[in-house]
């Protein structure tokens, strides 16, 4: 079933506040085979916040996670993230189109700090693979 096109422009509630700690950054860096002992955070670390918001969105719309494939991801950073930041992501649906029965959902998540200042904007395109595609694949 296609995702409802009236979602375009809709904004979802902010994800729960997330505190950036040394341990979380280190675990993230090590999970990609790297190391971290201070300094600049891994550039893709804000995806943790963006995922929180995306999963809330998919839950809210009743979309099964396993039918989602990531199509595109961009980050624009207003400032570097830092340990101690308390961050939250607010997702809005920027666009929706259908290609070959799949929904192409473009989302924009603004990641803000405890003062409400934007730290990073994460733009994601999610491909919702329509049921039945497996038979054609």
């Amino acid at each position: 079933m296609p995702v409802d096109s009236s979602l375009v422009g809709r904004a979802y509630p902010a994800s729960r506040p997330y505190t950036v700690t040394d341990e979380r950054v280190r675990a993230f860096a090590e999970a990609t085979g790297g190391t971290w002992s201070g300094g600049a955070l891994p550039a893709t670390f804000p995806i943790v916040l963006a995922f929180d918001a995306m999963f809330d969105f998919l839950d809210a719309e009743g979309v099964a996670l396993h039918r989602i494939v990531h199509g595109e991801q961009k980050f624009a950073y207003a400032r570097p993230l830092a340990v101690g930041d308390v961050l939250s992501a607010t997702l809005s649906v920027a666009g929706l189109r259908q290609i070959a029965g799949n929904d192409i959902i473009t989302t924009s998540s603004e990641i803000t700090d405890a003062d409400g200042a934007v730290v990073c904007t994460a733009t994601a395109t999610l491909v919702h693979r329509a049921p039945g595609e497996e038979e054609q694949a």
Binding site: G39, A40, A43, V69, E72, Q73, K74, F75, A76, T125
Partner: peptide, 14 residues
């Protein structure tokens, strides 16, 4: 380890 201002890509092939 320079500060990254923008990062992005499409995921074209799994």
């Amino acid at each position: 380890g320079a500060d990254v201002v923008e990062l992005g890509c499409k995921f074209t092939n799994p």
